[in-house]
């Protein structure tokens, strides 16, 4: 059936594969792709760093610290990310200038918000701060999956809470954290296209702009989708290596990349073979 579908798609002239091929390396598409990748990388970096901090705070014995983390997660998970993007884009009109100092006292620094918050910065902040809330729950799940005996042994050796967290618990929590984080990266790759609302020309928006002029809607959407697929594939391979690194010391570890491809390209299930 897959084969039949593939044949019909290549034979059908309406798909316009030559147009797709032409636009795959169009400079506007490539610029859009670069922006999508930059935005995804930057906002995921913010999201992961923030997620770790929020998760550690959430598990703190101090109710003020864990409460602050809870409120953050509640707010940023509870409001639409699109609203957050637009909000950050307009923060300059809400607060044109921010002065850092003592209220009614001396000022230490002065920031021109309108100049600082470009649409890219706004998109990056919105996506990153929102992602932090989701990542923190993923990190927290990883942390509580590590046996409590590990923390106790670390404490018994004289490690402080933070050192035990950084050296002993988090590296072992990574095994649980990585797979859903891979999900988040791939999802961010596509969610980042919401920045079209603040006129940032990412991959999808660039395609939209082109087909608005040429009416080759399907072809341009295929171009964008193919690029998204290529990025996702590269990310999946990267995730495999990261997972293998953090699986060290675990039972049943160390599969090779060959095993990975054997798994991916295994067509026997489609023909009814049982493995």
């Amino acid at each position: 059936m897959t084969f039949a579908l593939a044949v019909s798609m290549t034979k059908n002239k309406n798909f316009g594969w030559s147009v797709v091929g032409h636009y795959m390396t169009d400079s506007r598409i490539l610029h859009g792709l670069l922006l999508t990748l930059e935005l995804t990388a930057a906002s995921m970096a913010i999201g992961i760093a923030l997620g770790i901090v929020l998760a550690v705070m959430r598990l703190s014995p101090n109710p003020l610290v864990s409460g602050a983390s809870w409120v953050y997660i509640w707010f940023f998970r509870g409001t639409p990310v699109l609203v957050q993007i637009i909000f950050w884009n307009y923060i300059g009109s809400l607060y044109p200038h921010i002065a850092i100092g003592i209220p009614l006292g001396p000022q230490f620094a002065h920031v021109n918000v309108q100049a600082l918050i470009t649409p890219f910065i706004a998109g990056m902040l919105a996506l990153g701060l929102n992602e932090g809330a989701y990542m923190s729950e993923i990190v927290r799940a990883g942390i509580i999956s590590v046996d409590e005996g590990q923390t106790e042994a670390a404490h018994a050796l004289g490690m402080t809470r933070l050192l035990a967290m950084r050296r002993i618990v988090l590296p072992q929590a990574m095994r649980v954290i990585i797979p859903p984080t891979g999900n988040e990266v791939i999802s961010m790759l596509k969610t980042s296209s919401l920045v079209a609302f603040i006129a940032l020309t990412d991959l999808l928006y660039s395609a939209t702009i082109i087909y608005a002029a040429t009416y080759q809607t399907i072809q341009l959407l295929i171009v964008a989708s193919l690029w998204y697929l290529i990025c996702t594939t590269v990310l999946s391979i990267g995730q495999y290596y990261v997972e293998r690194y953090y699986a060290r010391g675990a039972r049943g570890q160390a599969r090779t990349l060959q095993d990975f491809w054997l798994n991916v390209t295994d067509i026997r299930p489609f023909f009814g073979f049982r493995r």
């Binding site: 005996g149 042994a153 010391g249």
Partner: peptide, 14 residues
């Protein structure tokens, strides 16, 4: 103070 546990608690990733 050194401590040895019933379930060893060796750091699994090391």
């Amino acid at each position: 103070i050194g401590m040895v546990f019933q379930r060893f608690n060796l750091f699994g990733h090391m």
